Computed example of a mutant assay.
Amino acid sequence: MRRRLTISASVLIASFTFAMPALAETEPTQQLTVNTYNLYLGADLTPIATAPDQQELVRRTRTAYKHVLWADFPARAQAIAKLLARQQPDVLGLQEVALWKEGPIGGPLHTTVDYLPILLKALKKHGLDYAVAAENTNFSGQLPISATRQVSFTDHDAILVRTGIPGRWRASHSESHEYAARLTVPTAAGPFTLPDGWSAVDVTARGRTVRVVNTHLEPVDAQVRNDQAKELHAALATAEHPVVLLGDLNSRPSDSTGPHGQFTQGGYTDAWAAIHGPNNGFTATQIELDAVPADLDRRIDYVLYQPTRPAHPGLEQVQAVRATVIGDKLRDRTRSGLWPSDHAGVVAVLAVSPRRH
């Protein structure tokens, strides 16, 4: 009896030892939490572009700038930071990261609202440290608001990566580009060209790497928007790692020939649809920041991802495990009753599996 037990124990130990290398090679997936958020530049600029003459253009520019100040981005940034503190994203893809300046005509301008440092400070207050990993400029211009004063506006997109946490995602290989497809708007002050663009960065943690891309596509002209999407899809085809695309694509899920259709038919998965199906998840557009209830009625802000690189099946694999809309509930508003933005944000948790050898 004792001999049989000894033999059985020896077999068990040998079996366990044989199995150990296989267990050691089994690596867990790494979670990457991403967020896309259009911050709202503070006013609708369309009336400026359609002003019939110079005098009306000045009046409309002044009205828009007053609305920017009323829209109170410092308060909205605190509301956004509070939302993000609950979600703890590793990477933020931000659109309409505005910079507003004011000053005398012919003289120096001083900054009145600079979204990026305001948001970074608000995030830090809520225990979140981020660094700017990539940034692109979509538009910059200045117009008079009176006979003696003028304002300037610069529109950025930015990718922020969380810092200060050991073992979390690290950024490298950033790039930024302008689209060749662009809209030129005739105005009473002369034509304005809106180049739009995109930026990208690799994020890596524990041997897994994905390429994170952020963009804000043309909102008005469908042909320009579709051409921009084609450019972007083609540019990302050469990425060495699976791509996660964040952004305001100004394209609904039913837009089969537009940006959403181009990417989902071209190998990308819609994180919201993967978790919840094709309905709901509305992110746009809150017409008035103080209107109640929320009047979001469409989905145009996305986290899209490649499950794997089609030409490189041995690389990392990506799968959505959670998707959430934030900034669409009454409790999300500022103390004065403003919505965090005219868009809701989307947060997705992605499982990134290790490379297969």
Rank of each mutant, 00 (worst) to 15 (best):
L94R: 01
D114P: 02
G267K: 04
P28K: 09
G106W: 06
A133M: 03
V91R: 05
G167C: 05
K230E: 00
A131F: 07
A323Q: 06
Q265N: 15
D114K: 08
T215N: 00
P47F: 05
T215F: 00
D255A: 02
A205S: 12
V210K: 05
L92Q: 06
W70G: 01
E288H: 10
K66M: 14
V325W: 06
A98G: 11
I300C: 01
D157M: 13
H357L: 11
D342W: 05
S336H: 14
L315S: 13
L128P: 06
I300D: 00
D129Q: 09
G258K: 01
A181D: 01
A188D: 10
P307C: 08
L45S: 11
R60V: 04
H67R: 15
L246Q: 06
G314L: 11
R356C: 07
R4K: 12
L123Y: 05
Q54N: 12
E240C: 04
K101G: 08
N214G: 00
I105N: 02
Y115E: 04
R62L: 11
P195D: 15
G327A: 04
Y37T: 10
L32Q: 08
A351K: 10
L246H: 05
A81H: 07
R60P: 03
L160R: 05
L84W: 08
G337D: 07
A64Q: 08
F16Y: 09
L330S: 09
S336D: 15
G42F: 05
E178Q: 14
Y40L: 11
M20A: 12
R252P: 03
G266Y: 00
L236N: 01
E231Q: 08
Q317V: 13
E25L: 15
H276A: 06
Q142W: 13
A234E: 06
A147N: 09
V201T: 13
V346I: 12
G258P: 01
P47Q: 07
T137H: 08
A77F: 02
G127P: 06
H156D: 11
I7N: 05
D297I: 15
S172A: 14
R168A: 14
V213P: 01
Q228G: 00
G327W: 03
I165M: 09
W272Y: 13
V346P: 01
L236S: 01
E288L: 15
H67M: 14
T61N: 08
V352F: 06
N38Y: 03
A291Y: 10
